[in-house]
Design a protein around this nucleic acid. Structure first.
Lengths: 129, 129
DNA sequence: TTAGAGTCTCCTGATGAGTGGAGAGTCAAG
DNA sequence: CTTGACTCTCCACTCATCAGGAGACTCTAA
């Protein structure tokens, strides 16, 4: 299967497939006489796997290390578990930050609403026209 | 005031000041005979303003458009309000996404815990060793 | 006068995950 | 044999926000 066929069957753009191959995420089984990359059927579930882990917020680098474990002959489920746990921790930290930021923004806007004469109190005070 | 003095008084690195000046966020009042950028005292509250809006998660581009309104002779408080509202909306959307993602991850991990024989059920099924 | 500190412009790189295009080569059908 | 679709490599660019360094110039203090 050449790259275009894999692209249309998987829905992943040709450019992206080449990029994945370059990163080592998606090995080609070889090249044709003319130098075209050749992929086998296994590329399809592999791309699906990549897609799923990407959708879960894992980076290509993390996905690659999962696949490396897999390619070493071991199902990477344990590693995936570990990474998913890390990912949950990251999400919690990010949500906490966002929550705090949102509170700050909300407070500023509330002050503005309650006392329009403040004209931006903490934000604009030193900025003169 | 030369760029180094502004850097030490504001705490903003020289490189960053040059970058801001290049973007038009922080106009220099001119150049010395030797070609050195010269800044006035107004640069300090301006940098403080930039710092505050940055801390609130606004991009330099958004800050620049606030400053453009300000420089046109109008206090940009209304525009800032509008942008802060947008920012809150963005945060809400992002938090919703993260919440959903977290739920998915948590669910996957819970399945794994409850039934280790699944070995990754929805994630690894098509990936054969 | 000289040393050293400060500043200038320009170039490169870093992060992540690609996208776009140029120019050349390959392949299959008519 | 030709045409058009496909693919190749290589390079630049995207988004944001700078950081690092080279090589040259300017300014200040002793």
């Amino acid at each position: 299967m050449k790259i275009g066929a894999l692209a249309s069957r998987s829905g992943v753009p040709v450019k992206t497939l080449r990029y994945y191959e370059e990163l080592g995420l998606l090995p080609a089984i070889g090249r044709s006489e003319g130098g075209y990359r050749l992929f086998d059927e296994d590329s399809l579930p592999r791309l699906e796997f990549i897609r799923r882990l990407k959708a879960l917020g894992l980076s290509l680098e993390e996905i690659q290390s999962c696949l490396a474990v897999h390619d070493a002959g071991e199902l990477p489920c344990h590693d995936i578990q570990v990474m998913l746990n890390h990912q949950i921790e990251r999400i919690d930290a990010r949500m906490k930050e966002l929550h705090q930021l949102r509170g700050e923004l909300q407070g500023l806007l509330a002050d503005w609403q309650n006392d329009p004469t403040k004209q931006g109190g903490v934000i604009c005070p030193n900025l003169k026209v």
